[in-house]
Design a protein around this nucleic acid. Structure first.
Lengths: 205, 205
DNA sequence: GGTGCCGCATGACATCTGTCATGCGGCACC
DNA sequence: GGTGCCGCATGACAGATGTCATGCGGCACC
């Protein structure tokens, strides 16, 4: 911890938000944003190039999600602290982030002061998680969908027909229908559109 | 323009982003964020209470959209300059924002420097619009959907069945099908899910 | 005061979607 | 080396969805 400054990498795709967050952290005396990236697949290289203490990762990014980036960092650079930041407080996101090795999980709805606070806390070895979200994640239970069901549902999300899904996934049309049918039942909804909707809401997609 | 400081109202629902943007603007010598709100339906009251020069409005907010808020402000407080800010660079959004009386339209993808710049420019009487977006809005043409088609499509967006839509909108099931059918044709897609998707993308919903 | 568009409706039809029963090979677990 | 789950498939069926032709009343525009 040379000079006492906490060195942070900031990953967020929207320039204006990213630079605004950097400005916010820049107001803190003990925090320094030393690198910024706009894509998930640029995080690892930037982290290696900059000798940082904490990585701040938005989930929704092109190239790779912040959760995927967190998993990479956790594997390649253990010791580095990981803060995952997201617009959507979906229980499934929290769960995935934790499994990827995140030390903190913040939603953008939270007061800005929590950001710097979380950075300091994870560096002190603490974990930072919104209690409400943690409860929801535990109560909501694990993702009930199998890999294939998730895969098919994700592919169906844009309104593709069964025939298109079958071609894209190299499955028969009947099989596609079966997967969607079981997904619909597991999610207790009445058609694929609702299934996509609720799976998204829970962070299961 | 007492004291030479530009007084800004900031409306954005995500606290962290809102406060980060405030920090960003706070770095400018000639700009001062004098009020912040998190809901679209609180914008007008805040604007009246604070004697501001520029209102910075996010589109996606609870209560009322930034575009609706812009329309209110334009009507009630003409003279006030309006900057609309959004995550999504949808041509329809730009069009609606301009019709609502906005002086500037910015996407959050743009460099942070453009924000302060836009604030200064609108105050100088200029209009600020991303040229790429402007072209897309003109090329994309106007919304081809009728009011009813839009209404039905919006209601169908969450996966409701025809029967539910008919009940909710006080229409017969056949009529619902007709509206969706014409909307599907106008949008050149093959089912309601795709229709919802592309209408959203263009900002026509 | 026609002409034409819009909102609303009906009925018929083809297609798509969701469900269910059933089957088979592979693989893991006891 | 059974038993059972998973991935994949088929076929049949009911119900939902999308299309089309057609009709009627209201209203705006020339």
């Amino acid at each position: 911890m040379s000079g006492g400054m906490i060195k942070v990498l900031l990953a967020e795709d929207q320039s204006m938000v990213r630079e605004a967050l950097a400005a916010l952290l820049g107001l803190e005396d003990d925090i320094e944003v030393v690198a910024q990236v706009a894509r998930g697949d640029e995080v690892l290289a930037a982290a290696r190039a900059h000798d940082i203490d904490v990585a701040l990762l938005d989930i929704e990014m092109p190239g790779a999600t912040g959760i995927e980036a967190a998993a990479q960092l956790h594997k390649e650079l253990p010791g580095l602290k990981l803060v995952v930041l997201t617009t959507f407080g979906r229980p499934g996101y929290l769960r995935s982030a934790m499994e990827a090795g995140a030390d903190a999980f913040l939603v953008k709805d939270a007061p800005a002061a929590q950001l710097a606070e979380a950075v300091r806390k994870v560096l002190a070895g603490e974990r930072v998680i919104d209690p409400t979200l943690a409860a929801a994640a535990l109560a909501g239970g694990a993702n009930p969908l199998t890999d294939r069901e998730r895969e098919v549902l994700r592919a169906a999300a844009d309104g593709s027909t069964n025939a298109e899904l079958a071609a894209a996934l190299h499955l028969s049309q009947g099989t596609v229908r079966n997967y969607l049918s079981t997904a619909i039942q597991k999610l207790a909804v009445r058609n694929r559109a609702e299934a996509v909707r609720t799976a998204r809401e829970k962070g299961w997609l």
